[in-house]
Amino acid sequence: MKGFVQDIEDLAVKNDEFRRVIYTAKHCQLVLMALKPKEEIGAEVHKLDQFFRVEEGAGEAVLNGVRTVIRTGFAVVVPAGIKHNIINTGSVPLKLYTLYAPPNHRDGVVHHTREDADADNEHFDGKTTE
């Protein structure tokens, strides 16, 4: 079977990596993320749309300077061109997943920490999971 069918909540909650690309299709990409307490993704702007879903923890979503408290069960949609950041404001890891449309990272890439992600100037190279 082509495609991705798994328990995304379980995968997200068990993930301890800052970023783990788990599936890349031609037009979208599924990525797990875990932010340590007080850690943030870092303010960024994409030329693509992005969706976040919080599976565990609490934090803030910042979209064009507007801060909104987020917690387990919250979704955040970031249209292309919007400056955004996700910040863990809690005392436990913030576990989430994100969808990029179109893909943004190399398929299968794992960044153990934000520092690893910042040091790796990788981008989607056109190769999909299948």
Results as ranks from 00 to 15, higher is better:
His111Ser: 14
Ala117Ile: 01
Glu17Ile: 01
Tyr23Phe: 15
Gly81His: 03
Glu56Tyr: 07
Gln50Lys: 14
Ile82His: 03
Lys38Asn: 13
Ala117Cys: 10
Lys47Thr: 13
Met1Arg: 08
Asp125Val: 06
His123Cys: 12
Val5Trp: 07
His46Lys: 10
Ile8His: 01
His112Glu: 15
Pro79Tyr: 10
Gly57His: 06
Ile82Cys: 01
Glu55Met: 15
Val77Tyr: 13
Ala43Gln: 15
Pro79Asp: 02
Ile8Pro: 09
Val45Glu: 11
Leu11Trp: 02
Gly42Leu: 13
Val62Leu: 09
Ala117Thr: 01
Asn88Pro: 06
Asn85Gly: 01
Ala119Gln: 04
Ile70Pro: 03
Gly3Tyr: 05
Lys127Thr: 01
Glu40Leu: 02
Gly81Pro: 00
Ala80Thr: 00
Gly65Ala: 14
Ala61Thr: 08
Leu63Gly: 00
Ala61Cys: 08
His111Phe: 13
Leu63Arg: 06
Ala75Ser: 13
His112Ala: 14
Thr89His: 04
Gly73Tyr: 08
Leu63Pro: 00
Met1Trp: 03
Asp125Gly: 05
Gln29Gly: 06
Val76Pro: 00
Tyr100Met: 08
Ala101Thr: 13
Arg71Gln: 15
Phe4Asp: 01
Arg106Thr: 09
Thr98Tyr: 08
Thr68Tyr: 04
Gly90His: 03
Glu40Thr: 02
Lys38Thr: 15
Arg106Asp: 09
Leu30Thr: 04
Val109Lys: 05
Leu94Val: 04
Glu17Leu: 08
Val21Met: 00
Glu17Trp: 02
Phe18Met: 08
Lys14Phe: 05
Arg71Trp: 06
Leu32Met: 03
Asp16Met: 09
Asn64Ser: 08
Ile8Asn: 05
Pro93Val: 11
Asp10Gly: 00
Asn121Ala: 15
Leu30Met: 14
Phe4Lys: 02
Asp10Asn: 10
Val76Met: 00
Tyr23Asp: 11
Pro103Arg: 06
Ser91Ile: 09
Thr113Ile: 08
Glu55Ala: 01
His46Arg: 05
His105Trp: 12
Thr98Glu: 05
Leu99Val: 15
Met33Gln: 15
Asn104Asp: 10
His123Trp: 10
Asp120Glu: 14
Ile8Ala: 07
Gln6Cys: 11
Gln50Arg: 11
Asp107Asn: 14
Ala119Leu: 10
Lys47Ser: 12
Gly81Leu: 05
Leu48Val: 06
Val77Leu: 14
Gly108Val: 05
Ile87Glu: 10
Thr72Ser: 15
Met33Asp: 07
Phe4Ile: 07
Lys83Leu: 13
Pro102Thr: 07
Ala12His: 04
Arg114Gln: 15
Lys127Trp: 01
Phe18Thr: 01
Gly90Asn: 04
Asp118Ser: 07
Leu32Ile: 02
Leu32Phe: 09
Asp49Glu: 15
Phe18Val: 08
Leu63Tyr: 02
Ile70Asp: 11
Tyr23Thr: 07
Tyr97Thr: 07
Arg53Met: 14
Gly108Glu: 04
Gln6Lys: 12
Thr98Lys: 00
Ala25Lys: 07
His84Phe: 05
Asp7His: 03
Ile22Met: 11
Gly126Thr: 05
Ala119Lys: 11
Thr68Ala: 06
Phe74Tyr: 09
His112Ser: 12
Asp10Phe: 12
Leu48His: 06
Asp125Ala: 11
Leu35Trp: 03
Pro103Val: 03
Thr98Val: 12
Lys83Met: 14
Ala101Ser: 14
Glu60Cys: 06
Gln6Arg: 12
Pro102Met: 09
